[in-house]
Design a protein around this nucleic acid. Structure first.
Lengths: 136, 136
DNA sequence: GTACAATCTAGAGTAAACTCTAGGTCAAGT
DNA sequence: ACTTGACCTAGAGTTTACTCTAGATTGTAC
C-alpha cells in the first residue's frame, strides 16, 4: 500500500505542510509517482511515528536529521543509531527526573497556598478581623 | 540587600538581556534607583527562580505573565494563583506520564537494536556468512 | 471539455523567546 | 579632564519549527 500526501497526513495527523517541510529537512523522503506526486509507503507510518516520538521527547530536528541519514545508509549504521538513542535515553531520563522534582516543588507550593487560604477563611469566619490582608 | 542588573544576572544565571525582556513582559519589575537604574530586591531571587521553574515545566510566558499579574495584586488573588498552579500541576503530571511511556518505548527499541547487532556479530564470528546485510 | 480538487514548487510569513546593536548617560578611577 | 565600564532605551535580528501563499499542473467527475 502507498499513500498520497493527503491520505498520509490524515493517517498520521501531521499536516501536509509539515510533511513537505520534513522532506525538505530530509527526515522522511517518500517515493514519487510518474507524475511527480509523493507516494508514502506503509512502512513510512511507523517511521514518522518514531520521528514524532523523538520530537515529543525534545530531540531537535537537526538531531533527527542525523538519525535519518544513518538510517538511510542501511544496516551498517545500526550501532551508530543505537548509540544515538542510548544517549538520548539518558537525556530523557534526566529530564524526567528534573520534571519530577519540579512537580514535587509545585506540590509544596500548592500545599502552602492551601493552608494560607484556610487561615484566611478561618479568621474571617471567627470574625476576629475584617481585614482581608491576613495572609502575606 | 538590592542588586544591580549585572549582579542579579550573575546570581540567577539569567542574562541581562533576558531580565530586561522579562521586565518588558511584566514578569519581574525591579525598583529603580534615583538615576534610573534597576535595583533588584533579595526577594526577587526567589521569584525569578520560581519563574524559571514554571518555564522549565513548559509554562509559556503569557501564562506566567498572568500569574505575575495576580501576584502583583496581592494576597486577595491567592486562590486564583493556587488554581493556576493546580491546573499546571495536572498538565505537568500528564507530560511526565507521556515522557515515561516514550522512555519505555525507547528502551524497547534500544534492546531490539542490541539483539540485532549481536546477531550480526555472531554470524560474522561463526563465519556462516561474509555478508554484512544480515540484519534488516 | 471544463470545472474541481488535490497536488506541485519556491519562497514569504508567523510565533515564541530570546539576543544583540546603536547611540546615549553617568559615576568612578588615573 | 578623560577614559572606562556598567547601565539605559528602542528597536532590529536570530533561531526553531512550522504554516501559508501564489501560481502552475494534473487527474477525475459531470
Amino acid at each position: 500500500m502507498n499513500y498520497s500526501i493527503g491520505d498520509f497526513s490524515a493517517i498520521t495527523g501531521i499536516s501536509i505542510y509539515t510533511l513537505r517541510y520534513y522532506e525538505k529537512e530530509s527526515l522522511i523522503i517518500p517515493a514519487r509517482k510518474e507524475n511527480g506526486r509523493r507516494s508514502y509507503a506503509e512502512s513510512d507510518i511507523a517511521w514518522i511515528q518514531f520521528i514524532k516520538r523523538l520530537k515529543d521527547t525534545g530531540m531537535p530536528i537537526r538531531e533527527i536529521q542525523k538519525y535519518a541519514k544513518l538510517r538511510a545508509q542501511g544496516v551498517t549504521t545500526m550501532a551508530d543509531r543505537m548509540e544515538m538513542l542510548a544517549r538520548h535515553r539518558a537525556v530523557l531520563k534526566e529530564e524526567i527526573g528534573k520534571l519530577e522534582e519540579h512537580l514535587s516543588n509545585l506540590d509544596d507550593k500548592i500545599t502552602y497556598y492551601r493552608t494560607e487560604i484556610r487561615k484566611c477563611t478561618n479568621l474571617r469566619e471567627d470574625r476576629r478581623t475584617a481585614e482581608v490582608s491576613c495572609c502575606t
